[in-house]
Amino acid sequence: MTLLRADGLVKHFAVRGRTVHAVDGVSFDLAPGETLGVVGESGCGKSTLAKLLMRLEKPTAGRVYVDGADVFAMPARQLRRLRRDVQMVLQDPYTSLNPRMTVGAIVGEPFDIHRDVAPRGDRRRLVRELLDRVGLRPEDADRYPHQFSGGQRQRIGIARALALRPKVVICDEPVSALDMSIQAQVVNLLADLQRGYGLAYVFIAHDLTLVRRLAHRVAVMYLGKVVETGTVTEVYERPTHPYTRALLSAVPVPDPALRGRLTPIRLTGEVPSPTDPPSGCRFRTRCWKAQDLCATEEPVLGLGRAACHFPEPLR
């Protein structure tokens, strides 16, 4: 069963007469209660993908389906209903909460728009329950965002996202602005909420270690494309795309005993500009396996795990 489906999503932006290929053909299926981790470096298109999934941007091509319904072809009435099912947690807990609203008003605002979810008399109680659920105190409803730490603010953002009892929450770098001791708290909360409500997540992050802790399946993006996808175990333990291997190899291992024992793969250079992506395989300019074929023919994801002409053999 598929809850959220992306089908050939493409988003190009025109910038000063040039075309930025932010997202260039991304497809995936997400089942209820499942977490898809989306990893990649800056400029790979992961935040644009989040906006497309939320219908905050219109795709240049491709479709997004929620419970089988095409979200870009919906009448306004149905779209309004859709907003209940798909919610978002944003990266920056400092700019994503209105400083002039109380926490209660922020978390309860979705009820102003979707009045049938919570009868007027119930709102206060529901807001307090939500705050309690994300580890805040019910009396925090009367305070303002600036009175909270970054981690607590992110909890407020999560409570707001949960208010309408969504089926899927798109999390765009939800903990990258937080200190390390707080990141684990928020990740544990997200995992706990998933179990409690059967939520599905699209969890977008550049931190591969975090994604491993939370995701069931992973999509690795590079310059607007998914280059490898599979279960967490497959992708992390048996990566087949050279970029996935290099990316995992670049993550510092928090164990000094392994220093010098691992032979790291070091990529040269940096990610090319998405305004002028390389021909053929977009990764070929940094790839140690690249052949002539890679410059002329674009590898496709197809049924395999990796979009690569020369992937590591599946073990």
Partner: peptide, 27 residues
């Protein structure tokens, strides 16, 4: 020394960071 510290931390804060455990409360 980094090897000593990762093998056996002596401060509870370091120990919690190394375990990757959520530390309750905020700094």
């Amino acid at each position: 020394d980094v090897h000593q510290l990762f093998r056996a931390p002596a401060h509870p804060y370091t120990a919690a960071l190394l375990r990757g455990a959520a530390i309750s409360g905020t700094p």
